[in-house]
Each structure stands twice: as C-alpha cells, then as structure tokens.
Amino acid sequence: MKNNTEYGDCPAAETIALLGGRWKLIILHVLCKHSRRFGEIRVRIPSISKKVLTEQLKELEADGLISREQFKEYPPRVEYALTDFGESLRPLLAYMSAWKKEKV
C-alpha cells in the first residue's frame, strides 16, 4: 500500500489505494467463502492472466488482507485465505454487492 501521508486524512482514499485495481475486490470476493488454491481462484476469474493473478495475490498478502499457506506434500499445494484484516472487509463487500443488485 502507498504511504499514508500521500492521502492526508482521507480514510476512503487509503481504502481505495489498498483495494484499488481491477482484480483485488474480485479476488477478495472469491476468497470470502473459504480458502482456495491458485487454480480455483483462476477458474472463478477466467479473464485474469496467471501473471496478474500472481501479482495481485502477492500485493494482497503484503497488505495483510490474505494469507498464503504452503503445505509440505507432493504435489505441492498452496492455499490462499482471508486474514482477520481481510475478514473485516466482508460487510463492505456484502454492502457493495447489495447496493449493485438494488441499483439494477
């Protein structure tokens, strides 16, 4: 996430900076129900490239919104899940979804 001083005292701008981009909210929405593997996320967002999904997952992890768990098994398995911080976005995501449905 960008430096907080860049946004002054505007929490909304900081939130948009944290969640900004075309894919982050969609990825978070996909992870809302339960943890998923990379391939499961990609199947649910077919228009995202592997490269962009990888980048977005790394950014979300760096910002503390998701966790990445690597299991020591063969074949290797990695799962992504919302952290407690990411879980705190559930009401926002639900509100945004309800708002869109209401406005259609």
Rank of each mutant, 00 (worst) to 15 (best):
S49M: 05
G21N: 05
K50V: 08
W99H: 14
L92S: 08
K24F: 07
P11I: 13
N3E: 09
A12P: 00
T15K: 00
I66H: 01
A13L: 13
R22P: 00
G20K: 12
R36L: 12
K101S: 02
K50M: 14
E59H: 04
L19I: 02
E14G: 04
H29R: 09
I26D: 03
E102G: 09
I16K: 04
P46E: 06
G8Q: 09
R42I: 13
S35T: 04
L82A: 05
E40L: 07
R42E: 04
V30M: 08
H34A: 14
K72M: 12
I45L: 12
S67E: 05
E87I: 02
K101C: 06
V43Q: 14
D63A: 14
V52C: 05
L31H: 03
Y74E: 06
R77G: 01
E73P: 00
S35Q: 06
I16T: 04
S49I: 12
L18Q: 09
K103Q: 09
G21E: 05
L89A: 03
E61H: 12
G39R: 04
L53D: 04
C10E: 11
A98H: 13
L60W: 02
H29V: 03
R42C: 02
G21K: 05
I48V: 15
V78A: 14
A13F: 08
R36M: 14
L93K: 08
G39H: 02
K50I: 14
C10W: 10
E6P: 02
V30E: 04
E69I: 06
K100R: 15
R77I: 15
